[in-house]
Amino acid sequence: MSKKKVVVGVTGLNNIDSPGPGIPVIRALKDSEYFDVRIIGLSYETLEPGIYMHDLVDKTYQIPMPSAGTSSLLERIQYIHSIEKLDCIIPNFDAELHNFIKLSPTLKKDYQIATFLPELEQFESRHKSVLFEFGEKNDVKVPFAKMIFSPSEIYQLEDKFTYPLVVKGKYYDASIASTPEQAVSYVNKISAKWGYPIIIQEFVSGNEVNVTAIGDGKGKCIGAIPMRKLYITDKGKAWAGVSLEDNQLIEIANRVIANSKWRGGCELEFIKSNKGEYYLLEMNPRFPAWVYLSVGCGQNHPEALLKMALGIDVKAFESYESGKLFIRYAYDQIVSLSEFEKISTFGEL
């Protein structure tokens, strides 16, 4: 059987020490038995390593930063599409998803470019600030959380929380406070940096386990692979990890994907409490950087996503191999100045 030729735009080529998922997604697509992919890299910066990985990325174009807005992005995609005839785009950055989700109907209708993304409402529903409500709605335990808008509110929370508790910023930062006084001081510190609201969250101690999963948008979980980090970098990123056999976790992941009718890839971050209960800490709305482990375990999630994006029927995976490891490594590419010049001056390479 000859493979189906497709042109796919992929972002997240920053395969650095805290990597984006672009290159792992591309490797997965290149491994496909079904597709013969031409990869169009979409980059934001000139030093994203993927730009120069010509065995994986056939051609790269710079695209405007998300803050430039959808009209700039659409104009750039129109240009790229006029040359490359894209069949599908797989965005991989949190910050760009809002714009791609907004544009996806236009891309489909006017340019026949497929995407496979959650609806804006789904995307918003798993934000850190509303995750507790997300958990209630989708029948998954989430540490109890409440948004506050001033440090004085800490003292009104005494009937709702016990110490220690977690003080979290809207986007980043989290600290564990053992007393109200400590909590107030963290609230002040974090709000100075990220503003309000601040999220006060129940502290759950235990081990972190993550799941990379993919949903069909109709309530079916196509695949899910649980993984525990074996070694983390000083940025908290997995350096090595191992796939787990954990039916309970798979069942929870299936339930979250099914109830939320999630469309596309996602990463579920759980903590397994000392009592053996799973709490959802975060849901990232795209594949994680370790998604290639799914291929290693026998479930090619990016390939499944591409199939669904193109309207090809996909059956849910039934099994995977546990005990497979991924071990990341760094690699120095040698690049000529003329390549750097091309991407810098023309925005294409």
Binding site: L337, F340, E341, S344, T345, F346
Partner: peptide, 15 residues
């Protein structure tokens, strides 16, 4: 300096 206006300073590495 290339025709495109790209400049590379070999003594500092800046572009």
């Amino acid at each position: 300096i290339s025709d495109t206006g790209f400049i590379f300073n070999p003594s500092t590495g800046d572009s």
